[in-house]
Amino acid sequence: MKYTQNNLDKIERIAEEAGYVIRYERGNFQSGYCILQAKKVIVLNKFFQTEGRINTLIDLMPQLEINFDALTHESQKMYDEVMSAEAHK
């Protein structure tokens, strides 16, 4: 997968369609993100470049509660791509 702003937007859209709010903040992040499960908020390190943001969201995807059927067709395709890339790690 290419590390472009367009791909970052698509991955963010998956989380947003699943009901998550993505915020970019600064702070002491052990692995670049923090999940507030009760509120469905994902907080990412705002100092990450596009590649770091994409990698962090891809690493995070398996932990999120995502209803595949509720995603748009475009998001379903990207979700499949993200999950297959994560499985090959």
Rank of each mutant, 00 (worst) to 15 (best):
N7K: 08
L57R: 04
R13K: 14
I54G: 03
N6I: 11
D59E: 13
K89E: 13
N6W: 02
L44S: 02
N7H: 01
K89L: 13
I54M: 03
L60N: 04
Q76A: 05
V41R: 10
L71V: 08
Y20Q: 08
E12K: 12
V21P: 01
Y24H: 15
E81M: 12
R26C: 12
G27W: 09
K46Q: 15
L71E: 06
I66W: 01
T56G: 11
I54D: 00
T56W: 15
V41W: 05
G32I: 03
D80I: 13
M78H: 01
E16M: 13
N7P: 00
I42K: 02
A87K: 14
L57S: 03
I11S: 00
R26G: 15
S31M: 07
V21L: 09
Y24V: 03
E12N: 02
K89C: 12
E86T: 04
A18T: 07
M83S: 09
M83Q: 08
N67S: 13
S75K: 02
Y20R: 08
V43P: 01
N55T: 11
D59T: 09
T50Q: 03
Y24F: 15
L36W: 12
H73F: 11
Y20K: 08
G52W: 03
D9M: 01
K2R: 13
K89M: 15
D9H: 05
V43C: 11
N45G: 07
Q37P: 15
D69L: 08
Q49C: 12
E17K: 09
F29Q: 03
H73T: 06
E12I: 08
V41M: 10
L64D: 05
Q5A: 00
I22D: 05
E16F: 04
K89S: 14
L8I: 04
A15I: 03
S84A: 07
I42Y: 06
L64K: 06
K40N: 12
N6Y: 06
V21A: 05
A70M: 10
Q76G: 06
Y3T: 08
Q37C: 13
A18E: 00
Q30M: 11
D69W: 06
